[in-house]
Design a protein around this nucleic acid. Structure first.
Length: 428
RNA sequence: GUGGCUGUAGUUCAAUAGGCUAGAGCUCUGGAUUGUGGUUCCAGUGAUUGCGGGUUCGAGCCCCGUCAGCCACCCCA
């Protein structure tokens, strides 16, 4: 290859790719707008401490770290939530609650790449801060579903899997699992779908015995409804909270999208309550989106005690799903394309284009001196709706020929009325 | 970070068992059509077979390295 490749894990956005990206972004912005979220952004790089302080040094391997000229350790942002928590903490109590913010950050993670996982990507982040009730969780889950519907997906394409960190903790403690065993148990649980049943049972037994009965834990993990869960683990306070959440979601009309799934764990340490993930129906891709409650993070960064819940959806998996659905960009580049009949002299086309553009109509003409047939091809490439022939015989009689590129119909239009007639034709 | 698979025009794929000048569709450019696009027909541009080294009389094919991509782990904010 003579052409140098871009860095590993990055993408080039050619116009077709950019059209897909913009389709996703504008859908995201429109959904957030309907839910009354305000957009914000944060720096693309932060002090390394912001990330290590929360997750330990281990995370540094996943970060793009560099020193600036003063020797400060900085990192390209791998996620937005720490910046958000920092920004909210910095405002202290000066920020009107609840905060309903969204952002579409460009993020960087130094990772081994796989399908649906790159080193540079975008996310939609939606967060509500200052609300402890499940209404906020329900609002965000509903927004995530609407985000998918806005992109054209239905309940046949994806589902929301909901669980609760608090619920699991209460359940396992009730079953006799010691508190210090919980992290390793979550680890086993997280890979349940990836390993065989035998392996799972063996790892489960290793994680909970002898304090708790592996079979009791396994039984608890096999339940598919909250009601069944209480039969196994007894009354659990967090179950009531989840029930309330599902009740709200039913009122939102979300029943066909959401389900209780005790297998949803989420890797992040900072989640404290309800957690949820969106998956494609076939579960052949990575998670579309994921989120949950992180009630302690703002305080961790020195801010006021602020309950918070949020989710993030990546652009990579969504893009793959849209392409599978035969998404076609097909954006119109220009509405009007001028065909110069006196192709040696572009002045007429330049003057006419200027007139049309001043009226707010997108317009192009051939920048190369070439035949009418070729100019028509260029009009096609621009996906123009109308072709306007300038500089021909008709113009001597005070009119110009306008051709509808779709139907092939042509009209003679008075030269002086050209712009207003074009506007009318385009609005029809 | 670990293991496996793959790498041929811009793109999708060919090339008997290692054997002459590495082929084709699509795309792109030009022409048929110097005042009319999409269809069709014709022609052309375009590859030091990812890169570097090795084995061989001879390598797209075999070996080593490297880079890139895919898959499974690890991780997943």
């Amino acid at each position: 290859m003579q052409v140098p490749a871009g860095p590993k894990g990055t993408r080039d956005f050619y116009p077709d790719d950019m059209a897909l990206r913009e389709a996703i972004f504008s859908s995201w912005r429109s959904t957030c707008g309907r839910y009354g979220f305000e957009q914000f952004d944060a720096p693309m790089f932060e002090h390394l401490d912001l990330y290590t302080q929360k997750s330990g040094d281990e995370i540094e391997k996943q970060l793009y770290v560099f020193q600036d000229k003063a020797g400060r350790s900085l990192a390209l942002r791998p996620e937005l939530t720490p910046s958000l928590a920092r920004m909210v903490a910095a405002k202290g109590n000066n920020l009107k609650r609840p905060v309903r913010w969204f952002s579409i950050p460009r993020l960087f993670r130094y990772e081994k790449m796989q399908k649906g996982r790159l080193r540079e990507f975008f996310q939609l982040n939606m967060d509500i801060l200052g609300v402890a009730e499940a209404t906020a969780d329900a609002e965000l889950i509903a927004a995530s579903v609407d985000m998918m519907r806005d992109l054209g997906f239905t309940a046949r394409d994806f589902g929301v899997h909901v669980s609760s960190r608090a619920l699991m903790e209460q359940l396992f403690l009730a079953l006799g699992v010691p508190a210090e065993k919980l992290p390793s148990l979550y680890g086993v649980l997280d890979k349940r779908n990836k390993i065989s049943k035998e392996e799972f049972n063996a790892e489960l037994a290793a994680a909970v015995s002898p304090a708790a009965s592996p079979s009791a834990v396994a039984e608890a993990l096999s339940v598919t409804s909250l009601a069944d869960l209480e039969k196994v683990g007894g009354p659990l306070p967090a179950a009531g909270e989840l029930q309330q959440l599902f009740s709200y979601l039913g009122t939102y009309g979300m029943d066909e999208f959401v389900s209780f799934d005790i297998g949803v764990v989420r890797g992040l340490a900072y989640y404290t309550g309800i957690v949820f993930e969106l998956f494609d129906a076939a579960r052949s891709l990575r998670a579309i989106a994921g989120g949950g409650r992180y009630d302690k993070l703002v305080k961790l960064y020195g801010g006021p005690d602020t309950p918070a819940v949020g989710f993030a959806a990546g652009d990579v998996v969504l893009g793959e799903m849209l392409l599978q659905k035969q998404f076609t960009a097909g954006n119109r580049r220009s509405n009007v394309f001028l065909i110069s009949l006196d192709e040696r002299h572009p002045e007429n086309a330049i003057r006419t284009a200027t007139l049309i553009r001043h009226a707010g109509i997108s317009c192009e003409f051939s920048l190369r001196k070439t035949g009418v047939g070729k100019q028509m091809e260029q009009a096609n490439a621009a996906r123009s709706l109308l072709a306007v022939f300038v500089g021909g015989e008709e113009e001597k009689g005070g009119s110009v020929r306008v051709r509808n590129m779709k139907s092939g119909e042509e009209d003679l239009i008075d030269r002086r009325e050209l712009v207003s007639r074009l506007a009318k034709l385009l609005s029809a």
